[in-house]
Design a protein around this nucleic acid. Structure first.
Lengths: 205, 205
DNA sequence: TAGATTGTTAATCGATTAACAATC
DNA sequence: TAGATTGTTAATCGATTAACAATC
């Protein structure tokens, strides 16, 4: 489990593997080959084998991969074998959608705090969480040991929220606002903006 | 405006350029250099120049790019100079969030129809659209000349919805469901699943 | 003119794919 | 044993970056 420069492309595929493996597990499938995986996930089998081989020898030659064992290993790699507290800022439609999405509960990620800047949102209940004011952000995040912050505020507020996350000691940020946010290099930011997604799709019409 | 094999990476950056150029335009900035852009967007200036050069000579040597002109050109490239009707299936939290997101209205994309399979959702008003039953999907999409379909249903329903989109003649699909959907190769699919996004982020903790 | 910045070619870097020995 | 599939090296492919002549 050392890190000999794993590319981002590899890391992004791991959750996709995990998701499908979980489905196989639910269907009580015991073993799976890189060929099977490749077919279902539209990926080259050699690539899948190579991706996994970065982290260890998880398969059996001539047989394939044990589904349960591989799930366990990928969860370890992604650090999903521990509870990861997440905070979200922006209790709008998107924010509420993410809160209600409990799919990641199974994978040990949990939104433990929700914040908003507008007074009429504060105190509102979302999925047994009470929306807190921005003034409570830094302290609450420190108390709850939040490691990942999600930003679902309008673009013009995103950088301010990011700054607060950084101040509070968050290690990674998932930004849904349509703007590039700047943070110190030791903090990881992923951008998940669906307007750019939709616009790039238009190119192929 | 011919297509000498433009890579997906290039196409994905164009909306990011466009977004920032729009902001410059709002601020009445006339000209911008690849250096400026690169700094703001965390990209290599040479890459930006190369990306744009695939589509034409939009800049002026020694000067930079005219903001308004570049906006116009990128909008043409992305086909955002015409109205693009979009349909959405799945009137849950995420679906409603996307409907309310009117940011893409400015960019000529418009959600013109919303569908859901559960009876209690049908007839509900979302942003002056009435949620329609799945049985109306194919006919409505053909009538409204919908070109892009958005899927915000649970994973187990996503493939069925995709099949209906294909039958109705949609040209591209944006899938938010956490599952790989299979469509004929002439139809473009982008996956925008934030659970995989969040999980890959955990790797970097 | 001098300084700046593009468009483009060449060099570098990195990621994907093919191939195959090892082995279950 | 024969067939299948991994782990891994080598080959290929593609994308990013550097460099610089052209030129505003």
């Amino acid at each position: 489990m050392k890190t000999p420069k794993i590319s981002e492309a590899v890391v992004r595929r791991l959750p996709v593997y995990l998701r499908f493996l979980n489905e196989l597990s639910r269907r009580n499938v015991q073993m799976v080959s890189s060929q099977d995986l490749g077919q279902k996930l539209d990926l080259n089998p050699a690539q899948i084998r190579k991706d996994l081989a970065y982290f260890g020898e998880f398969g059996k030659k001539g047989i394939g991969y044990d589904v349960g064992y591989l799930i366990e290993k990928i969860r370890q790699i992604l650090k999903l074998d521990q509870l990861i507290p997440v905070a979200l800022v922006g209790a709008g439609n998107l924010g509420r959608a993410l809160c209600n999405y409990n799919a990641y509960l199974r994978d040990n990620m949990k939104i433990v705090a929700v914040f908003d800047s507008s007074p009429e949102k504060i105190g509102v209940q979302i999925n047994n969480l009470t929306v807190l004011p921005m003034s409570a952000l830094v302290e609450t995040i420190r108390e709850l040991k939040v490691r990942i912050g999600i930003i679902t505020v309008p673009a013009f507020e995103a950088q301010v929220v990011a700054n607060q996350f950084v101040e509070a000691g968050v290690e990674a940020i998932l930004n849904f606002a349509p703007v590039i946010i700047k943070v110190p290099s030791e903090i990881r930011v992923h951008h998940a903006d669906f307007t750019t997604e939709l616009q790039s799709l238009a190119y192929y019409l």
